[in-house]
């Protein structure tokens, strides 16, 4: 394995006729990180993954996996990668164990941890794939991808359909892979998922990479909107110092908090709260607010 970064793209673009699916993507993913590729459906995440795997030819620009051009030397580049597609890529009539074995053989790369992954994700390998629930099918796809002993994993919407406990275990597995020096490129449209799983995230909007930032930096500057209803007295603006009060209507207050919510929660605990909801900002809002703050300072 070379010292080159796992993924480097330079002005990578893809158009379908007049439609630009991806525009000038320049990105470097470092070794030993979990990189979240965030964006709404249709933003160009899957197109990027396909370009990285040589499943599509770029209209312009280049992509390299560990220094190897994915289009000029596709098989050599893919020897370092394991891919989990977003769509079901399963053989319905095959039993899970046979499916995993078949891909282990066909993959042309060594496999590892198969039994461990099966056990930790609680996957029944004796069943036929067509009999599995959506979540279990996703587990099969995850095990198939992660059983490859390679330095880079491309995972497209990997937690789709997984229950929360399995998502947590999946997160622990990814963290272990990262700690072993492996790199994970994970595409998702769920901000909270990226927050929990990733070290760094890139936001893709309409085929353009609009921001790349560390997750801890984003989290610190993240704005949450609280809606609290009180039975008796309501907190004053002074009580809610650090928060921005948006409205007060008949014993209900809406306010926004940037960064840690610890202080606000302790304040609210001193009052009789009858209802409390917290809105998570949309992906774009989170990023745009962050960049607005950066611009303002």
């Amino acid at each position: 394995m070379t010292e080159a970064p796992p993924i480097v793209t330079e002005a990578l673009s893809k158009s379908y006729g007049s439609v630009r699916a991806l525009t000038d993507l320049s990105l470097t993913v470092e070794r030993g990180e979990i990189f979240g590729f965030l964006g709404p459906n249709g933003a160009g995440k899957t197109t990027t993954a396909r370009l990285l795997l040589g499943l599509m030819r770029p209209t312009s620009g280049s992509a390299r996996i560990f220094g190897t051009d994915v289009h000029a030397e596709g098989p050599a580049a893919r020897r370092s990668v394991s891919y989990q597609p977003s769509a079901d890529a399963l053989y319905e009539s095959t039993r899970v164990a046979a499916y995993l074995r078949a891909f282990a053989r066909m993959g042309g790369v060594p496999v590892h941890r198969t039994d461990e992954l099966i056990e930790r994700l609680d996957l029944d390998t004796s069943r036929r794939i067509k009999a599995l629930s959506t979540g279990n099918r996703q587990k099969v796809a995850i095990v198939r991808a992660l059983q490859a002993d390679v330095p880079l994993y491309l995972l497209d919407e990997p937690t789709r359909g997984l229950d929360p406990l399995v998502q947590q275990e999946f997160g622990r597995i990814l963290a272990e892979y990262r700690d072993e020096g492996r790199t994970i490129f994970l595409s998702t449209h769920i901000l909270s998922e990226a927050e929990h799983l990733c070290d760094r995230v890139g936001l893709l909007r309409e085929g353009r990479l609009v921001a790349v930032e560390r997750v801890d930096v984003l989290t610190e500057s993240r704005v949450r909107r609280f809606h609290a209803r009180f039975a008796g007295p309501t907190p004053t603006d002074d009580d809610l110092a650090g928060a921005t009060v948006v409205s007060r209507i008949d014993g209900a207050i809406s306010f926004e908090v940037t960064g840690s919510v610890d202080r606000v929660i302790k304040t609210l605990a001193r009052f009789e709260v009858t209802d409390l909801t917290v809105d998570e900002p949309s992906l774009e809002d989170a990023f745009l607010r962050y960049y607005d703050q950066q611009a303002a300072t």
């Binding site: 396909r50 499943l55 893919r78 394991s82 399963l90 993959g107």
Partner: peptide
């Protein structure tokens, strides 16, 4: 049609 082509061609094969 089965969406398995992606997974197959993502292997190190021409």
């Amino acid at each position: 049609g089965r969406h398995t082509l992606d997974a197959l061609l993502a292997q190190p094969i021409t």
